[in-house]
């Protein structure tokens, strides 16, 4: 795939279409899940820390958890559920209807045409979606922590300063990019090698989502070890 990426012709139009599918198409669901993830996390943290009189740690804990772990992982799972499955379905359908074979016949490299733009689009858009997830989640934690749990704004805000560094955000974005590579590759791979008609396409789609989600969680552990 790397070779196919480097070799012309470069299909920017396909890349743009895939970026729209992955990025713009997932934006709403990412914002929605980000908001509620941040909100519920803030609510539970405020309760748990409140037992020790340390509610002020709510904001920093939520922000740290979102930037380092939940943002990249949840965004990746959402994109896996939406985009990875879509890739497997589209490419799988093309495979079982022999469109890919037809492309080969017409001397069009199917990897270069179908897989490379999708993988790169996901790698590029995942950090963007992760940033949106983090931002919206932190805003939600402000709303819930200060608005509903009654945590003092000053302490809430100051603790975020003291606990987080820019690298926490950047590390999360790096993770997201790697997750993007993995989940898009799995989706495309499963679709590309789908067989057995419509049933095979359905299986490929399910496998793509399951494998992508599990692999994301496993890689997350190792990436966390490496990055922090």
């Amino acid at each position: 795939m790397l070779l196919a990426s480097c070799r012309p012709p470069y299909r920017f139009k396909q890349l743009l279409i895939s970026m729209e599918f992955v990025g713009f198409g997932s934006l709403f669901i990412i914002m929605l899940t980000g908001f509620f993830t941040g909100a519920i996390l803030a609510y539970q943290c405020a309760y748990a820390f409140g037992l020790f009189g340390a509610e002020t740690l709510t904001g920093s804990t939520v922000a740290l958890a979102l930037c380092r772990e939940l943002g990249p992982v949840m965004a990746a799972i959402m994109v896996a559920g939406r985009a990875s499955s879509g890739m497997a379905t589209v490419i799988g359908t093309m495979r079982v209807t022999e469109q890919i074979d037809a492309m080969k016949t017409m001397a069009v490299d199917p990897v270069q045409y179908l897989i490379v733009p999708r993988v790169w689009a996901t790698v590029l858009m995942m950090p963007v979606l992760c940033a949106v997830f983090d931002f919206v989640g932190i805003v939600a934690s402000y709303v819930v922590g200060i608005g509903f749990a009654g945590v003092d704004f000053g302490s809430f805000d100051a603790m975020i300063d003291s606990l987080l560094s820019p690298f926490d955000v950047l590390g999360g974005l790096i993770k997201a990019a790697i997750f993007g590579l993995v989940l898009s590759f799995i989706g495309c791979y499963k679709g590309f090698y789908a067989a057995g008609g419509a049933k095979g396409v359905g299986e490929a789609t399910t496998d793509a989502v399951v494998y992508a989600s599990v692999v994301v969680l496993i890689i997350d552990y190792f990436l966390t070890m490496v990055l922090w």
Partner: peptide, 9 residues
Amino acid sequence: VVLLGLVMT
């Protein structure tokens, strides 16, 4: 989308 993500980052 890219602009939104960049601003938030």
